[in-house]
Amino acid sequence: MDALLYTAWDMLLGPFTDFAFMRRALVATLALSLSAAPLGVFLTLRRMSLLGDALSHAVLPGVAIGFMVAGLSLSAMALGGVIAGMLVAGIAGIVSKFTALKEDASLAAIYLVALALGVTLISNHGTQLDLLHILFGSALGVDSAGLLLVAGVATVSVLALALMYRGLVLETFDPVFLDANRRRGRGVFGAWGSRGSWVWQQGFLMLVVVNLVAGFQTLGTLMAVGLMMLPAVSSRLWHDTLPAQLLNASLQASIAGVAGLLLSYHLDTPSGPTIIGCAGALYFSSLLMAPGGWLPRWWTTWHRVA
């Protein structure tokens, strides 16, 4: 029995106690779980779930240009990704304002072009390994600079979300009330003048972009959105209240991150896709067992019929 417990303990904690790269990957993944997953909850509530996916692809040209200028310099690629993400979001908003296209349609068209452009730039100025690293990331390859970037973004994001929380909740559920308070000049909502809810939306989009850019180091530009959206969608099946959804999403993202790192280490699989696969497993489990999932609904319906 003692030998079995020792083996289980060694499998679960041994990789993190024995190897520094596993500890860095763990801290980076947990930091992303705390900052990105709550943003995903707001994206789902605002019916903007696909926006996160579009922006995660849209940052690729900026990352590619940063790579062309400075090689695998994290700061250059991160700066390029933030600029590209905000530029694509701004262009999509302008197109929807001055044409007959809705913002989701214009965003889909622009992010596809941006994705193709980014892949082309990286392919022409780097190796296949560089392309795979940028697209799919490597949580086990996070260095000290990458860890500082992720931790800094997570800290700023959590603090900013706390400061913006009330305004985001109002702008999400009752934008009319928010605009009415703005016009009357009440409290913090009146301080934004005529810009109204636009400030909250742009600030929120900035947080989404910087979290996606921070996530590309560990999960890649194609996978970063997974840790933001999958736990957020799952949490809505478990809870009706917003605070509970925010906590649940961060908890599920953390569990997926730890489980994905351990599986990646023991099974020698790519870390980013493995983490997202674990988040997907939690999502499908929620579909079955959560109060808003299939089994409880089926049980309630069967009891009513019986």
Rank of each mutant, 00 (worst) to 15 (best):
A3L: 14
G14K: 01
F21H: 10
A36R: 01
L45N: 04
L45V: 06
R46L: 11
H57G: 02
P61N: 06
G62V: 12
F67L: 14
A70D: 06
G71N: 05
M86Y: 04
G90N: 07
L107Q: 00
I110E: 00
I110C: 04
I110L: 15
L115F: 14
T120P: 03
L121V: 14
S123P: 06
L132E: 13
A139D: 05
L147I: 03
V150E: 01
L159A: 15
L161R: 03
L163N: 00
Y165M: 13
Y165P: 06
F173V: 12
N181V: 11
G185I: 12
G190T: 12
A191I: 09
A191M: 14
G196T: 11
S197A: 15
W198D: 13
W200H: 07
L207Q: 04
L212I: 12
T218L: 15
V233E: 02
H239T: 09
L242D: 00
Q245S: 13
L246C: 08
L247C: 10
A256K: 04
V258C: 00
Y265G: 09
P270Y: 00
S271E: 04
G272L: 09
I276R: 03
G280W: 06
L282N: 03
Y283D: 08
S285A: 15
P291M: 10
P296L: 09
W302G: 05
R304T: 12
